[in-house]
């Protein structure tokens, strides 16, 4: 019985373990980029189609992408956005640029999928 309680406790620890939040360093460095523009080739798409989206910056930074629904293909400053049968509607695509001084800026666009 004792062994079982220990086992349950250990499994419980795994199940409820929380991820440590990354502490954000203080933002004391100069911003190393200017986020000029976020632009898509098409602002509306048929389900099953894709469009190219480009983030234009001046300077140096890394790119992170997310969307409210749909699929993003590729990495870097230019990606493809597409949506399958699941995803009719208006979707926000967000690009966040971050530099090595931990400065970041995000822009978003909306693409309508029909």
């Amino acid at each position: 019985m004792k062994r079982l309680l220990i086992l349950i406790f250990v499994l419980g620890l795994f199940a409820f373990a929380c991820k440590k939040e990354n502490s954000k360093p203080s933002n004391d460095g100069a911003k190393l980029f200017t986020f000029n523009q976020l632009k898509a080739d098409k602002d509306s798409l048929k389900q099953g189609d894709v469009t190219s989206i480009r983030a234009q910056i001046t300077g140096e930074g890394s790119f992170a992408w997310s969307c409210t629904s749909g699929d993003i293909f590729g990495t870097g400053n230019t990606v493809l956005f597409g949506a399958g049968s699941c995803c009719a509607g208006n979707h926000e695509i967000i690009c966040t640029v971050k530099d090595k001084n931990d400065n970041s800026e995000a822009k978003s666009i909306f693409i309508y999928v029909y």
Partner: peptide, 19 residues
């Protein structure tokens, strides 16, 4: 049922689709 993570997985800077 508890989700393993409530934060969507990101690979190479791109958040993966729900599926």
């Amino acid at each position: 049922r508890l989700p393993w993570s409530k934060i969507p997985q990101v690979i190479d800077g791109v958040e993966l689709a729900q599926d």
